[in-house]
């Protein structure tokens, strides 16, 4: 098993949080993981992106220009990473911020999700990243909700512990939407 994903958006969208959840859950499952965040100038520009590689074999490259999946939480991320998705790969977009007309490639699987709207429906726009995470879990198949549930406590700082049930609910909602094939 070898899976690479780039998650991208702007600061505050919770990109780092969901990638930490995936990374830790994968480690707990005994998988190898590399986690490469943006740094320096790029970070200061307010952009955030993470490249995650998850494998049951030794991981060579921690960078990829043909990820199996891209999670693009805004239009700039789509603009930058759509072209990189591997053929037959998955492009999860935050349709609340990304017009569908941007999804140009026919050789990949687009999964536009109205993350912000779904999150608001669950009570907080801050849950939009969890909607995307749920969809990613469902489509990638590398981790289950149980794997994620068991690490939520570790990745959540003390002051945010009370948000764990809402986050898990949002992840489940994301799984549900992806399973229903919505947004195709």
């Amino acid at each position: 098993m070898y899976y690479d994903v780039i998650m991208a958006g702007f600061g505050g969208q919770g990109i780092q949080t969901i990638s930490q959840i995936v990374a830790l859950a994968a480690i707990r499952k005994g998988l190898n993981v590399t986690y490469l965040p943006s740094y320096g100038v790029e970070k200061r520009g307010g952009r955030t992106n993470v490249t995650l590689v998850i494998a049951d074999e030794e991981i060579g490259s921690m960078v990829t220009n043909h990820p199996k999946c891209v999670i693009a939480m805004d239009a700039i991320a789509v603009d930058k990473y759509q072209s990189q998705v591997a053929p037959r790969g998955l492009l999860i977009t935050n349709a609340s911020l990304v017009p569908e007309s941007m999804l140009e490639r026919k050789d990949i699987e687009p999964l536009p999700l109205r993350c912000n709207d779904e999150a608001l429906a669950l009570g907080s726009a801050q849950l939009s990243n969890m909607i995307a995470l749920g969809a990613f879990l469902q489509r990638s198949g590398i981790l289950g909700i149980g794997d994620v549930e068991s690490v939520m406590d570790d990745v959540t700082p003390e002051r945010l512990k009370k948000t764990i049930p809402a986050n898990l609910a949002a992840i489940r909602r994301g799984i549900e939407i992806a399973a229903n094939g919505r947004g195709r």
Binding site: A23, N32, Y35, L36, Y39, G40
Partner: peptide, 10 residues
């Protein structure tokens, strides 16, 4: 290189 400094692994 900065990549080795900045990336994360178990």
């Amino acid at each position: 290189d900065a990549m080795i400094g900045q990336f994360q692994e178990p």
